[in-house]
């Protein structure tokens, strides 16, 4: 019981402080609306069709981007990680592509491909591929030699080795990579939506509410929704990891 009450108390305390700050007038009127105003606005927005469509647009693009990224990065990581020549050769290229901040590509991709949903999905995929690719390659090096020796001693066939030993072996790291990818992809999606007119989504909603109308209550309500999405997917994946990858603690960095 105590375990679930204290976090709630913490959140309540934080909201109370925000309420006081918001009502104290230390920030100009309307710049920092108190939580009571934001939450009421959020409730109103959740009943509004256009807002819900924005949320759905973001979530859908996000899921598509993650699926594409996983479909690219995991097989590529397995291939690169298991062939030393490829691993070494492609390593340099990957090392130079990875640090390019994905949002820096926004202006470029927009002028080349326009501002449709394809653009933001492409950018999110680009951002999501690297953590997954890296964790998969790294994970292959972390599989216990003795485990592989055991499999070899029993004459396990290659496909079976991949399916029943290698894949479960890299799973904890891949899931950790997926969590990292998910949060980066969301950042890139929202950034793109904010910067590209007519791309839809929560990011666009926040941008319009902030720049056009100056409605900080709507900005914060939108931010809250984005945060809840991020929190939900992270908690969901952590739960998945605990449930299905029972044998190993989260691999790699979270």
């Amino acid at each position: 019981m105590r375990g679930s009450i204290r976090p709630l108390l913490g959140v309540a305390g934080f909201l109370a402080v925000c309420e006081i700050v918001g009502r104290s007038g230390s920030a100009p009127q309307g710049y920092l609306p108190p939580p009571s105003v934001v939450l009421v606005e959020l409730a109103r927005l959740l009943g509004e069709r256009t807002f819900l469509l924005d949320v759905i647009a973001t979530v859908l693009s996000w899921l598509i981007a993650l699926a594409i990224a996983a479909a690219i990065a995991v097989p590529a990581g397995l291939l690169l990680g298991s062939v030393p020549f490829l691993r070494n050769a492609v390593g340099a290229v990957v090392e130079f592509l990875r640090p390019i901040p994905s949002v820096a590509l926004i202006p470029l991709v927009v002028v080349i491909a326009g501002g449709g949903p394809g653009t933001k999905i492409f950018l999110a995929v680009y951002a999501a591929v690297w953590p997954l690719l890296f964790n998969t390659i790294y994970a292959l090096g972390e599989i216990d030699d003795q485990l592989l020796d055991s499999a070899r001693a029993f004459n396990i066939s290659r496909p079976e080795l991949l399916l029943r030993v290698t894949l479960p072996g890299v799973a904890p790291f891949v899931l950790t990579g997926l969590r990292l990818s998910a949060s980066t992809a969301l950042i890139v999606l929202i950034s793109t939506e904010m910067l590209v007119p007519a791309s839809g989504g929560i990011g666009h909603f926040i941008y319009l509410a902030g720049s056009g109308a100056g409605r900080m209550d709507q900005v914060l309500a939108g931010t809250l929704v984005a945060g809840l999405l991020g929190y939900a997917i992270n908690a969901g994946m952590a739960g998945m990891q605990r449930r299905w990858v029972t044998w190993a603690p989260a691999g790699g960095t979270t």
Partner: peptide, 29 residues
């Protein structure tokens, strides 16, 4: 342990907020 029990969830949530979403807020502030 106590401080983490009160603040952990709050911080995890703060981490989940995609930071670009707050740019408009910082912009007016």
């Amino acid at each position: 342990g106590t401080a983490m029990a009160y603040c952990g969830a709050l911080f995890s949530f703060a981490r989940s907020i995609p930071p670009p979403a707050l740019v408009p807020v910082f912009l007016v502030l």
